[in-house]
Amino acid sequence: MSVLKKIMTAVRGGAREVGELIVDSNGTRIFEQEIKDAETHLRKAKQDLTDVMAKQMQAGRKVESLKNEITEHEGYVAQALEKGNEDLALEIAEKIAQLEVDLAEQEEVHKSFSGHVVRLKDLVKKTERQLKDYERQLSMVKTTESVQKASAAITDNFASSNSKIISAKDSLERIKERQQNTFDRLAAAEQLEAETSDKSLEDRMKAAGIGDPDENSANAVLNRLKAKQK
């Protein structure tokens, strides 16, 4: 069963200690030990791998040198034959036969090391994948536990501080009200600022005799009445 599914079941069941339910009765401790063990295995496997790879390379070099030696001796046989020295040629041929036996042996060794390398590389990959998987699972379980514990702490804190948990709508209402207040205050300040500057301009214009004449002045009243009589 996937770890996420286990977490789901545990959380649905109202478990507080998810780790205990999912990985081990000792919580996540044993699981962490398993990860450490896997890491040790991985290190060991990598060491083995480098050893075997070194041996594979050595065997490879031996195979090469034997092949060279054989080719070399085959040349000697040809030379002996050219010189008509059949006995010497036979002796060299015997040497070649021996070298070929050695070569076959070394090739076998090389092949076996190569096979070993492939197997070890597979093992390393598999262990690495498993380790990643363990770590991923552990991280999920630990996060679930941590969220549950944090949530418990927050709830306890609410309870102990007697602060009433208000509903989301009320929270929103209060926040909006506060924002509106701030906004209104800013708007009022702006308006005041604008009015003050308008007023002072008007005053200065009036003093300079610019703009509308004062409607309540005696001249204005007289003019208005004269206009009516016409």
Partner: peptide, 19 residues
């Protein structure tokens, strides 16, 4: 900070006291 088995920090931003 909020005490508990795991440490939690309560942080409020600006005017958003309720959240």
């Amino acid at each position: 900070p909020i005490p508990g088995e795991i440490e939690v920090l309560q942080i409020t931003v600006g005017d958003f006291d309720e959240l």
